[in-house]
């Protein structure tokens, strides 16, 4: 009992914070079930009949459906390549000793500090010259490139924890370095790889500015850009119902993802920073 009262203050504070996080989401969800006029004029009324057609319009007319598919396509492929390519680089940087190791590591380190928008104009023109504007392939390549620095450093930390003996044993058995990497290191680093994948999944799924610049054709746009377009459309229509429904729709996949991977996501996010 003593303990409970001691923690009362902590609980109060945290409940308040939780409300601040969850109430806005709840309010938008309730409003997303109301017709547009009611949203503007009676913001605190409860929906009488759930206006599910808001969701249908957001999904079809608002283009969230196609944006959803595009985002899945882009995100899955991007994350796959990020993890493979980063793991290869991290393995070399963690395990091998060679002349330019520090220089290469520092080059990647700089990338942690480069905000994507700095070279916005040259990047766009480069992609244009390569014919990669308005192409998912182009967006994926840029996503992978910009995600490498963080993921490489996260994975170096993981590889550093794997004892050298296992690998040495493999080499004695006649495994070449590439085979040793595939057969020994990758399976051992699996938890790290999964954490990296989950962490990047969220980042790529939510990415907005690069997609905004590099994809302008409607059928190619990803979910965040489609969502921003719905907001832009409100300048010429009065469909707030679809806007609110769109917000909720964009929450659903990440919430499901979060419920499944919550623990790994939180651990993965902290791994790179804390373990070193």
């Amino acid at each position: 009992m003593n303990r409970a009262t001691r923690n009362l203050g902590s609980h109060l504070l945290l409940i308040l914070c939780s409300l601040l996080i969850l109430l806005p989401v709840l309010w938008v969800f309730i409003n997303s079930l109301k017709p547009s006029a009611a949203i503007l004029l009676e913001p605190f009324s409860l929906p009488t009949v759930p206006a599910l057609d808001n969701y249908v319009r957001a999904w079809t007319d608002g283009g969230l459906g196609i944006g959803f598919l595009n985002s899945i396509f882009v995100t899955v492929i991007t994350v796959f390549f990020i993890v493979i390519i980063s793991a290869m680089a991290a393995y070399a940087l963690s395990r091998k000793r060679f002349r330019f190791r520090i220089a290469i590591q520092n080059t990647f380190l700089t990338g942690l500090m480069l905000p994507t928008f700095l070279a916005m104009a040259p990047l766009f023109l480069l992609m244009n010259d390569l014919g990669l504007v308005n192409s998912h392939l182009g967006l994926i390549a840029v996503y992978v490139a910009y995600s490498l620095p963080f993921t490489i450093f996260m994975l170096i930390a993981f590889f550093n924890q794997i004892p050298h003996t296992l690998e040495e044993a493999a080499t004695i058995d006649g495994c070449g370095p590439i085979k040793a990497f595939w057969k020994i290191m990758l399976p051992l680093a699996k938890p790290g790889l999964i954490s990296a994948a989950i962490f990047n999944f969220v980042g790529i799924w939510n990415e907005y500015i690069l997609a905004l610049i590099l994809l302008s054709d409607d059928p190619l746009k990803t979910l965040p850009v489609k969502l921003a377009n719905i907001m832009m459309r409100q300048q010429y229509h009065t469909d707030w119902g679809a806007l609110y429904a769109g917000i909720v729709l964009s929450f659903i996949p990440v919430v499901i993802f979060y419920l499944i991977f919550q623990r790994r996501l939180i651990e993965g996010s902290t791994a790179g920073a804390v373990k070193e």
Partner: peptide, 28 residues
Amino acid sequence: ATVFFPYILPGVAIAMLWATIFNPVSGM
């Protein structure tokens, strides 16, 4: 888990969420 939750939401959706809440006429 609750405190971490906003971090995983799309930034665009967060902006839109709060735009509706700050709305001077219909906002929460």
